[in-house]
Design a protein around this nucleic acid. Sequence first.
DNA 1: TCGAATGGTTTCATATTGCTACCAATGGAG
DNA 2: CTCCATTGGTAGCAATATGAAACCATTCGA
Lengths: 150, 150
Amino acid sequence: MDVVSGPAGGWTDPRCPVARTVDLVGDRWSLLIIRDAMDGASSFTDFRERLGIARNILTDRLRRLVDHGVLATSTPPGGKRHVYRLTDAGQDLFTTVVALRQWGERHAFADDEPHSVLLDDNGGAVPELVPRGQDGRPLSATTSHVRKTT
Amino acid sequence: MDVVSGPAGGWTDPRCPVARTVDLVGDRWSLLIIRDAMDGASSFTDFRERLGIARNILTDRLRRLVDHGVLATSTPPGGKRHVYRLTDAGQDLFTTVVALRQWGERHAFADDEPHSVLLDDNGGAVPELVPRGQDGRPLSATTSHVRKTT
DNA sequence: TCGAATGGTTTCATATTGCTACCAATGGAG
DNA sequence: CTCCATTGGTAGCAATATGAAACCATTCGA
């Protein structure tokens, strides 16, 4: 596993963490594979059936995610077929998946259109994720800025 | 603008907000365009120079983002060339961009590798975004679940 | 032990991306 | 007003990525 080497051809923007994350998981399928892994999918067939993805593309994406340290394969005791599971880095994408989910809920559904819902342990809806500054006040693109490194 | 119609061929997974968001902005470039728009980019040339993206692809992505209500064009007084700006829905992707950025900072850089940093108004580093349940306790994939709709 | 399910690989067609050249419409300098 | 560089694209073509279908070795359950 190698979590700090870019795709073939190098990073899109080597100093920007957003660009690096997009390079690693920002394609049509990777984040949905990760979403399903968080929802319990673990076998090749699990992912294929849930996603309707082409087999060769799934092979490639699973391999990439393993190579980049987002997924790992493990062999259950007894020499069974191996399963895919999220690494710690993969689990840590939970925040990103929640952010994508909440934006979709707010902006990609008509008011009367049903969609799946994320619930906490007690069956309550998960509150909205809000970036805050050190003073605790909600932050937006206009009240923050990026300091580039040299 | 039409924020609730999918890409050609329909949605990847019509009931999942994560999938819808990925359908709209989950390609190699869209989120980086949005990142740069949040950082002040507004003209075709701004985006092209910052991203090094092919001109025809940039044309296509800007058009898609406008069509889906993430960006809008406005013409400054005096009949100048138009500029691209984020809509409210586009601004609302700030949380997602922050989540991608923070994951990248944690997992896609070696310890000694420099990267750009997001600062709040007062110049302080932005604290980590943490999804929480209704009881306020940090949430993870294992302490939450998705309720699918019928 | 046999047959079905699993987890792929290969091949080929199609779609997407990117490079380069081209072009019409600003818009600033003189 | 008249140039001429810049801006904001298009058009055409080559390279790359994606997807559908066929094929195949291994594993697992009956």
